[in-house]
Each structure stands twice: as structure tokens, then as C-alpha cells.
Amino acid sequence: MWFDSWSDLVRVLVVGASAYVTVVLVLRLSGKRTLAKLNAFDLVVTVALGSTLATILLSSDVSWTEGALALALLAVLQTAVAWVTSHWPVARKWVTARPTLLLRDGSPIEPAMRSERVSMDEVRQAVRASGSGDVSSVAAVVLESDGSLSIIPAQKFGNGSSLSGVRGYGE
């Protein structure tokens, strides 16, 4: 339970160091998107990368080469999906959630908040975090596809063009 063999420990050290270098190389080669703010798809890929790394480290049934190939495959698939979704907006709908308007001109949009499972307390917290003390001074609160809340103060709303494509705005 506490110790099986020195060879197992040496394997973890050698394969672990090699797998770590492989992860760093794969992440560098796959671009900034892999480490960017995560939407649901990116989160799944990141968790899969971590799980694959753990399997390489701890399972003697998986060789470093198999693990490195699995890491590279995940990065290539993520890059391919990112390319497809950036070139075909229809595909983006299948991979990422559409942003949703939760508050407009200081008034909550209850059906949107219910469907997105966001409470008014969470909206108020985001408004406070943006530096505003008055919800009525907020033109819009948007639940972004990565789960973050964007706050647009009334004095910075302008023509609202940044809300194009947001569910609940202009529909």
C-alpha cells in the first residue's frame, strides 16, 4: 500500500517528466486557445488532457508514446473544432452556448435568469465587482458562453452593437 517497488517510482519520475514536457509542447503548438478562457467545450478538452496526463503518470499499462499520441490527438481535435467553429457559424452553435441577456436597463429578465439558473444575487455580485453600486445604472448584464457575467454600464452602452448575437437582445 505505501510502497510497491523502486522501479515503479523511477517509472513515475521518468515518464512523468517526459509527459510533462510533452504536455507543455502540445499546449504551445496548439496555440493560445487551448489555455484561453474556457467555454464548455474547452473545459472538457482541458479535463481530458489532465486525465490523460494522470493516466500516463500512474498507469504502467499506458506507454509514454501512447499517452503522447493521446495528448496530441486531443489538441489536434480541439484545434480542428476551433477552426470549424470560427469558419462556419452554424457549427459554433453546436459547440458553444450562445450568450444570454439577463438584465436590461436595470430590470432583470426573469425567464432568461430561470432558464440559465442564475440568481439575482449572482447578478448583483457581478454588478458590484464591476465597480457599480446601483443595478439601475446598468444597461445590460450578459451571461457569456464561458459562464462569466459581463456588465455594461448605462453611460457606456452606446448603440448596443456589442449585444448583437446575444439571446434576448433584439429578438
Rank of each mutant, 00 (worst) to 15 (best):
M1K: 14
D4T: 13
S5A: 12
D8F: 09
A19P: 09
A19E: 15
Y20V: 04
Y20N: 03
L25T: 08
R28I: 04
G31C: 06
L35P: 02
A36W: 14
K37H: 15
K37C: 14
K37S: 15
L38P: 09
N39V: 08
V44G: 12
T46H: 11
A48P: 02
L49M: 06
T52P: 02
I56A: 12
I56C: 10
L58F: 15
S59K: 00
S60G: 15
D61H: 10
E66Q: 08
L69N: 14
A72W: 06
L73Y: 13
L74I: 08
V76F: 09
A80W: 07
V81T: 05
W83E: 15
S86N: 13
H87W: 10
H87R: 11
P89M: 07
V90R: 13
A91W: 09
L101H: 00
R104V: 12
S107H: 03
P108N: 13
P108S: 11
E110Y: 12
P111G: 11
R114E: 01
M120R: 03
V123N: 00
Q125D: 14
V127Q: 05
S130Y: 06
D134K: 01
D134A: 06
V135H: 01
S137Q: 02
V141G: 01
S145Y: 14
D146F: 00
S148D: 14
A154H: 10
Q155I: 14
F157Y: 04
N159P: 05
L163S: 01
S164M: 02
S164Q: 04
V166T: 02
V166N: 03
V166E: 03
G168K: 05
G168D: 03
G170N: 03
E171G: 05
